[in-house]
Design a protein around this nucleic acid. Structure first.
Lengths: 342, 342
DNA sequence: TTGAAAGCGCTAACAA
DNA sequence: TTGTTAGCGCTTTCAA
């Protein structure tokens, strides 16, 4: 027995197709009594609308706009490349992806891009959020215009966004500590932290989680104050080299931002036997090689492909007002050792 | 500009809709010259068939049958629950999911279930494989009957299955070794392995990967021969207790199958300070609690939700002869410490 | 070997 | 307030 259609509902409720369609789509112009009859019929038959047929009829296309930061950050470059790929495939699912790049950490620029998206009358906006009052305002205006909003990678607090897709950065920091702490139990000593900038929310959260667990579970390891390398290789090299000279008993390093090339350089100056254990973020050519060479011990990563896929699924569900499995947006922080490199 | 349709192709090639349809679906009865004209038109227009419209027209329904092990193994219970959930949602995608349970580690029972699925004329079968000649034979028969086969969680060697969805179990074993080896560097000693059964490929592969890395990277740790607990708590408890008594210098345990409750029981009999480091598979109520209590150090996990979702996507693509992004079936082995429990 | 026409489940323009 | 009818892009009889 195949599933019931609008025809079946119409027949049972003793009305025409259009009337069924009207109540189905919440359009006006149906007497309460009639609507009731239709609803009863739908219940009775267990009717569920066939979204694909509906989309076919409507010639429905989902226009989804991504707003992501511009600049040299290799993670964001990967994101852009990922979107390029998805744009092709998504077409088959009646989804048109457009992308605009905005200056990083610039609330005003982001807000402007959101306004442009609203004027372009897209169906949904996915953005890597920067915290700012203007951005929150722009999001409210999008929602008021019936445009769905999803945050990606970086969330927006107290916002009207429909969903967040990304990893839990506090948990990532905690995980780094859980690993590094266990790795370093053979010889107590100090732990160095290399950050990009404490002006960036991810980094702040990662540091927070890291220190939480270090203090609670590995009290014999003393955590030094973070140095800020601005995600620049040369600066990271210089700063870390200074730290390693000032504290010869550094047994572990957590790098929670970019600039892994500089990190590696600094470490290569030390004898292999004396090198600290190292946990870093983001799987790149650099960090992959360093893992293989045994210079880095673990890499934490967020899978951009999964993030974009999830964002698209969530977006379509939001647009169709279909509920989404809450696990869809939850991106697990992946852990790579040299042993499970993809 | 909306995408080209069969009408456009027909017009450009100067043929009728049915002729376009014939070449589109590889049916016979088209002159070579005509077919060529149609193909040229499709190329020229960049035509891509709208699968949703095609399915609507065909009243296509995908009947997909899952065969999974029965018994108390909580990972498999979760899988069953997951399928229950998916069955509801999948209906919206014209997919009917059915499930049959077979005794674990029983090739004959699995083969019988596969035969029944063939007689039920489903479109595809997804199975958690047990290695056996009968199973391989049954798979060949399915394929001969035009039924697609996907293996889930545990693969079938030298088989005709169309795809495998699951984690890379060799890599998982290697990862376990990478973690456990680093965790145990403080005090050298022996490493115990608890397996379920060497009849399932995932367990064999995990052991393989584990021993590879242990021997190569941590030669001071001696790996004992695995004990087979059949994924049963009581047996795991008994076997591990025996091992721990026979070898008081066991500093690490890798449990690559089920029966974590038994594992925990055996460990609880030891003083906290003397307990070995422990890495296990599958996040369950049991293992989660043990992580929180510090009895287990790390849990490797495969996300069942993602696996089922991927299996369905791949299955539909296989049935439609549409290529699948190779990343779809590749499920990352997630690593949980007490610090990143979801 | 080819084509015309009806229909899949749903929507929308137009009538009544 | 309700109904009729013609599609959406594709498949499938049935004729030619």
């Amino acid at each position: 027995m195949s599933r019931p259609t609008v025809h079946d509902v119409a027949r049972v409720a003793n009305v025409s197709l259009s009337t069924v369609d009207r109540v189905l789509n919440g359009r006006t112009g149906v007497r309460a009594a009639t609507e009731e009859r239709v609803r009863t019929a739908m219940k009775q038959l267990g009717y569920e609308r066939d979204i694909m047929a509906a989309n076919l009829s409507r010639k429905r296309n989902y226009a989804i706009h991504f707003v992501i930061p511009d600049g040299p950050n290799s993670f964001m470059r990967n994101l852009a490349a990922e979107l390029e790929t998805h744009a092709q495939v998504a077409l088959r699912d009646r989804t048109e992806i457009s992308v605009s790049l905005v200056p990083p950490f610039d609330g005003r620029g982001l807000a402007a891009a959101l306004r442009r998206a609203r004027e372009a009358k897209v169906d949904g906006v996915v953005m890597v959020a920067t915290e700012s009052a203007e951005v929150r305002q722009a999001v409210l205006e999008l929602r008021a215009a019936g445009i769905q909003v999803v945050t990606l990678v970086s969330d927006l607090s107290a916002s009207a966004r429909g969903h967040f897709v990304g990893i839990d950065n506090v948990a990532a920091g905690r995980t780094a500590a859980g690993l590094l702490g266990r790795f370093c139990q053979a010889r107590p000593g100090r732990i160095a932290i290399v950050a990009g900038s404490m002006l960036v929310r991810d980094h702040v959260e990662r540091r927070l989680g890291f220190e939480q667990v270090m203090h609670a579970d590995f009290p014999t390891l003393e955590v030094l104050a973070p140095v800020e390398g601005g995600d620049e290789a040369a600066r990271v090299d210089r700063l870390l080299t200074d730290v390693l000279q000032a504290y010869p008993d550094v047994v572990g390093v957590y790098s929670l931002g970019g600039g892994n090339r500089g990190l590696r350089k600094a470490l290569d100056r030390i004898d292999a036997a004396d090198r600290p254990r190292v946990v870093v973020h983001e799987l790149t050519e650099q960090s992959r090689t360093a893992l293989q060479d045994g210079v880095f011990d673990a890499v934490l990563q967020q899978d951009i492909h999964k993030e974009v896929t999830s964002a698209l699924v969530i977006m379509r569900n939001l647009i169709e007002a279909v509920p989404t499995d809450p696990r869809t947006g939850l991106i697990h922080t992946e852990i790579f050792l040299r042993d499970n490199l993809p």
